[in-house]
Amino acid sequence: MTALSVHILDEIRELPGKYPQPRSAVMPALDLAQEELGHLTPEAMTEVAAALELDPGYVEGVATFYSLFHLEPIGKHHFYVCTNLSCALRGANEIIDHVKQEIGVKEPDEVSVDGMFSYEEVECLGACEFAPMMRFEHRYHYDLTPAKIDQLIAASKGEKLLPTRGEVARSAGGAAEKPKPKPRTARKKKADA
C-alpha cells in the first residue's frame, strides 16, 4: 500500500519538467504530499523521492530544513501565531496563552484530544502593522483578541461533519483514550448548535 494516492504521485512526476533543473520540484512535490496527508510521513517522503528519482535522505534533508513542512501530525486547524518583537509588544504572548488554554494543549505542535487543533509560535509573518496577528486556515488574522480566537475556534468546529475521536470516546461513557490534557474545547460546545 502506498502512502500517497496514485494521482498525487502522477502529479509529482510531472513537476520536474516545469523547472530549468528537475531538483527544483522537490518542495512543490512535498507540498502536494503534505496537502494530501496533513504531514510528511517517512513513507511519503520515500515515495516523493522515488517519483522524483532523488535519494530519500536528500528529500528528508530538505523537508527538515523548512518550518512549513510538518514531520509530525498537527491538528486539522493549526494556529501559526507570530510572537516576534512587533507582535510581542502588542500582546502576542497573551494570545498564545489563550490559544493553549482554549484548545487544551501545553506545547507547540501538541494536538488537541479531538485531533482538531494545534498551534505553533512563528517568527515575523510580515504583517506587523496588524499586530498581534497570526496565520490560520491559509489566511492572516489581524488585531487578535481572545474573543477573536474564540470565534475562530467555534467556526472551525461548526464546519466539521463527523464527531471527533475525542467526542466518540467521551460519549461512549468511558474516559477518553488520552485523559490528559483536559479538553477545554468541550466548554465551547454551544457554539456548534
Binding site: 516576534n84 518583537l85 510580515g126 504583517a127 506587523c128
Partner: peptide, 11 residues
C-alpha cells in the same frame, strides 16, 4: 521572501 522582523512593506 520578506521575513525581516518588523518589515511588511513588500506584502
Amino acid at each position: 521572501d520578506e521575513s525581516e522582523p518588523g518589515t511588511s512593506k513588500d506584502r
